[in-house]
Design a protein around this nucleic acid. Structure first.
Lengths: 340, 340
DNA sequence: CTGTTAGCGCTTTCAC
DNA sequence: GTGAAAGCGCTAACAG
């Protein structure tokens, strides 16, 4: 492989001239420039980004740590991140943590060693003091996505509580007083916020909270069992909500097994939903996260942080929207419901 | 930030000893080792991957170029890739081409400049001579995914034709003789193969091919229009198949608009489908791609190629399966259909 | 067992 | 306008 030295030799110029031609970093006489360009062509020279990064002490890359790619919103978020990153000529380094805090730490370490210029950490599991410590230790630019565990770091996420409040409010308004909630692992910040929104909505409607209707297990056999118990029990709620797509899957599994009809036998609403669900039935009435926008804003915030390390940390809450399907069983399907 | 020189000074040893302690690359007396380790701790030293890459002339990273992240199979494929990559301690660099051959070339160039040790190129658009030339020019390890344009490069994909043949064969067996096909852009290799499978299935059943039933436009207004024309026309086919998820979306849009019932008014089958579609109706009878496995195998193949650049190129065809839903309207739902 | 040293390929002062 | 030279932080001969 050719190096800039080869190019310089062939063009009969110095190393520095080659570099300056390549980067347009100082004026070069046109004739010389042409000779250099020709030499580059002739040697099919390709600059070495690694050497450049070493010298410049920056890599023009950002690391992205995601918890779980099977979340359907993941692809959209990555797309948003990538849009902004490619505009800024940054390359993405991807690492998965698979919900394992240990792997998550490891991912951050590896990306750090690679000297990424910034870090995006998405949908992390429960807050980990170790991680926060690591992130703060070197004060490298970081933006947290949907993972509101710290106040002194940049973060972007959706405004969970109001969205859930509006979603549940809709079915409470329809007269439901026994509303189940598949709440998931409440150590996860976003899920906790959603559960909070649920409580707010019940309070709004003057409906007392029945704690036995709130299923706060993480995905797994226990949760499946709890859901089945709730739905097959003598006093089945008339409506059930779930707090995330993976939780909704568990819920739908149980509903299918018990051969319940939606919305005739039970009304279902969900936080987050499936792609193209409008073509299928039941079409879930649900909260829609602006996943692409979350990715974009997170990347933008990271870019700002990279330029100005001393900017005060910022927490961006993006609004979600409610998509009105037919799973809530209300007579008239309307367009997107407003979120208070 | 501390460098290995700082560590060496603090530990009172030479640079090389630090390096060897770090990499376990030659025996070091335990006492010395401990002193070095202590110094690392004390300085909170973190090795510089960039410098290491420059020196070692490898980066322990692979580039992944994807066409479009909105394909639902994308996330699964990435997951498969990542599993194998993380086992081999490789970092993933991600680039999107968004179906633009120009961006695709650019992505490959950028990743090359970053000196990735290997390249995975997925779901590319139409074959591009320029791309192939670029890939071959430096003979760096490359695996093509679902993009069978070249015979002399490693590639992995699904065995499209037999799968489509079996899928269509099923409905032909049900007595359908007018079967539409939303075939998509036939310059895309995988779509061409699927269309071929369709033709084979009709031939198998002794059904003559009616070319007006094959809609070979890429996604866009023309396609939408063609689909509507086909379905609203006087002589509507009794069944329609589509060759990819994005095409299926177009098809379902039209079906919804025309208020046709599936499978009563029209039978629908598809190549590739939506996540968790079993919970919704109609549950599409469809070909299921082993997306995770494709990712894994591709990465594995790349690893082998990286170790042995002179290995003869290999083309891996993974079998797809057929998921039997209720959109095909056959009386008895059975378990996965066999692919001949 | 440990240290010295020569670079990897590039950017960037500092001179001319 | 152009060139010479000093490293960026690390690894890997080569010597002891």
């Amino acid at each position: 492989v050719a190096t800039s030295a080869d190019v310089a030799r062939l063009a009969g110029v110095s190393l520095s001239t080659v570099s300056h031609v390549l980067n347009g970093t100082r004026p070069v006489r046109e004739a010389t420039r042409q000779r250099v360009l020709a030499a580059i062509e002739a040697t099919s020279y390709e600059p070495d980004g690694v050497a450049r990064s070493l010298r410049r002490a920056k890599t023009d890359s950002v690391g992205v740590v995601v918890d779980d790619t099977s979340q359907p919103a993941f692809a959209a978020m990555i797309r948003g991140i990538e849009m902004e990153a490619s505009t800024a000529a940054l390359t993405l380094l991807l690492a998965h943590s698979r919900g394992d805090p240990e792997r998550e730490l490891q991912s951050v370490r590896v990306l750090r060693e690679r000297r990424v210029d910034g870090l995006l950490i998405a949908e992390g599991s429960a807050a980990s003091g170790q991680l926060l410590e690591l992130l703060r230790s070197r004060s490298s630019p970081v933006v947290l996505i949907d993972r509101l565990d710290a106040v002194d770091l940049d973060q972007v996420g959706v405004d969970n509580a109001p969205a859930m409040r509006a979603l549940i409010g809709h079915i409470v308004g329809l007269g439901h007083t026994r509303v189940g909630l598949v709440a998931g692992d409440l150590t996860v910040a976003t899920l906790r916020e959603r559960e909070h929104g649920y409580r707010l909505a019940l309070a709004d409607g003057g409906v007392p909270v029945d704690e036995t209707l709130i299923l706060a297990h993480r995905e797994g056999p226990e949760l499946s069992h709890a859901i089945r118990a709730l739905l097959a029990g003598p006093d089945r709620p008339s409506a059930v909500a779930s707090s995330s797509v993976t939780l909704t899957v568990e819920l739908l599994k149980a509903i299918k097994e018990l051969r319940l009809g939606v919305p005739e036998d039970i009304v279902v609403v969900a936080f987050d939903t499936f792609a193209h669900s409008e073509f299928f039935s039941p079409h879930l009435t649900s909260v829609d996260q602006p996943a692409v926008e979350i990715g974009r804003q997170a990347m933008r915030l990271l870019l700002r942080r990279m330029l100005d390390p001393d900017m005060p940390p910022r927490a961006l809450k993006l609004p979600a929207t409610i998509v009105h399907g037919d799973s809530c069983g209300c007579a008239e399907p309307r367009s997107p419901l407003p979120i208070a």
